[in-house]
Write a protein that binds this DNA or RNA. Structure first.
Lengths: 336, 336
DNA sequence: GTAAAAACTGGAATCGTTTACGGTTTTCTT
DNA sequence: AAGAAAACCGTAAACGATTCCAGTTTTTAC
């Protein structure tokens, strides 16, 4: 079923059929009615590949997701999906491996698919210099801040991860904890990871309390298992601690389990605080104390910015969404 | 950068450049070298939209995911993604809303994008009759069984959900539980939901133990919160029970939290068993007892079947992957 | 050394769509 | 009722690729 078939079927020309289908002028009421009816009957759908070639209305927006396993991205995609569906654009999602060179892949995807705009979920902001700047497509980085990069075509929406992280640590300090260990996510390739680490450092520095990474800090990738293992490793140092800050809720879940396995109760013996605000946290035993970043709001704003930039050719924007400290039940005051 | 630019740059014709780029014969070694070099230098990538029109090598495989929030699908996508990347095909992922009429949407996507093959993640097998049979594209249904539908172009890979569910209930019965309540997922639009319910009914029937759905059964959508609420509703009946079967791990997590909120300990006071085998389960307190379906294996087999059907024009196949009862720590024998 | 075969190349058709451009017909205006 | 304006419609060019076809050059074979 091509537009040509439809033209033959209705007796009109291809041009007229195309105009009728796209709501363009220069087609009589009668012709439009006949054509739309025939289209509906035969279940005609335009071939997007052909449509995109004359890309006036190509209308493709690409979501590039780095790390399919992250529940936060799933939440964001649901929002993005529904917002784009209400717009004249259409969404396509591509996953790239967490290990992969995401910039290279993104550049390739853009050249291949020629989208109008891009949403990066979880892309690190490093390496963008090489490769992405000569692609003129407007993009929005979600969860990471691209402010300092200063690309004219790269916007961003993020939580102030450093401050959120600092807030978490300060909460532990306020509760009187001094023997604190930290389980961090990868810093190598992630702005979020780096910023959360920095925030943690600031918190200690701000209170004039020493922080010894080699003693108190372990880094691992984002998974329950690695959080669990990192916590065990910290326990095995045989230097007791009274609180854990896990720089991701999944890490916190693993850490809680590790503590339990060593006979320590949360929060009676050890307090635990996470960061992210996974929906899961509120249904754990104990309910996880955490710092929630508003991912759905981030997704909403990201789409708004992208559409705005596309339609009004505005400059790149950078927004920060507020975070919330969720009390949970995994925190207790340090025993004197 | 189009193929035309490349032709001009190298001095060869468009046809020759195309042949060189695609490894076709009828190109001199010298020409090929020059062209490939120029292509690499200029970072040329063919425009997929144009490529697909003469769709000899369109090579598009579509993954249609129903419900972005499901962690299982994320796990499957990672596997699918990497397998397809090693094949000559390319993958595109589309999400459709859990509420949406997925068959209608799928048919539309196919007509628009003209993929060579389709992977359905979490699509219910109902409603396929209307609409999908006149699309000739080979498809594989993952997590649901399409055997009984008997479409020549629809394969499937699934767990025997009925049996898995039956196994879970029998485990509870074997432990001596008689006052059992069940929290189910939606049956309306999901084969999995229906089968798990049936399996549960069979388990009771097989042991000659009565099952009163209106008393013992609550249905809810798949989320922590709804599992929590369903459990509270069951507790509020004021008819005590000693075990819960939640027909999804997310529901089980919610249920455990609800029990705790009412002062009941798992498994001391109430045993809980889930089904799915989320990685999370093993890091909960207590570790969740569940029936694991091997989603990664399912994804692997699904891709294998699809590629095989595509390349050898074989008939539709239906496979069942085994499940495993994971002991966990949320089960205890009923007190006499 | 010549004929046949093989290798190479460019031009043109094709895919399914949109859109610019002319030519008709209809509708308005006075 | 005539001229202008508006509405309508078909033809053809364009988009960026692939592929067929025919023509030219080179290689091979005897």
């Amino acid at each position: 079923m091509t537009i040509k078939d439809l033209a033959e079927k209705t007796g009109y020309s291809v041009g007229t059929v195309s105009r009728a289908l796209n709501g363009m002028p220069d087609v009589s009421k009668k012709a439009r009615a006949v054509i739309l009816r025939a289209a509906a009957e035969s279940g005609y759908e335009p071939n997007l590949n052909a449509k995109q070639l004359k890309q006036q209305h190509s209308a493709l927006i690409l979501a590039i997701v780095r790390g399919a396993r992250n529940e936060l991205f799933g939440m964001m995609l649901v929002v993005i999906q529904s917002l784009i569906a209400q717009s004249p654009y259409r969404l396509e999602t591509d996953y790239i491996d967490e290990e992969e060179d995401e910039v290279h892949r993104a550049v390739q995807l853009c050249r291949e698919k020629k989208p109008l705009g891009i949403l990066f979920l979880g892309g690190s902001s490093r390496n963008f210099q090489e490769g992405f700047e000569n692609i003129r497509i407007p993009a929005v980085l979600l969860t990471n801040d691209a402010r300092e990069l200063g690309f004219s075509n790269l916007s961003s929406v993020s939580t102030d991860d450093a401050l959120a992280s600092q807030t978490a640590v300060e909460r532990l300090l306020d509760l009187g904890h001094r023997d604190i260990v930290i389980i961090g996510g990868p810093r190598e390739n992630s702005d979020t990871g780096r910023q959360r680490y920095e925030g943690c450092v600031s918190a200690f520095a701000g209170r004039g309390i020493p922080f010894h990474p080699e003693q108190q800090y372990r880094e691992s990738r984002y998974s329950y298992r690695e959080g669990y293992q990192a916590a065990l490793a910290l326990l095995d140092r045989n230097q007791p601690f009274t609180a854990v800050f896990a720089m991701a809720d999944v890490l916190a879940v693993g850490a809680v389990r590790a503590l339990r396995d060593r006979g320590l109760k949360v929060p009676r013996d050890v307090s635990v605080i996470g960061i992210d605000g996974l929906p899961l946290g509120d249904f754990l035993c104990p309910r996880l104390s955490t710092v929630r970043q508003e991912v759905e709001e981030m997704a909403r704003r990201g789409v708004t910015i992208l559409l705005d930039v596309l339609e009004n050719h505005g400059p790149a924007r950078h927004e920060t969404v507020p975070f919330t400290l969720l009390p949970g039940e995994s925190l207790a005051a340090a025993k004197p």
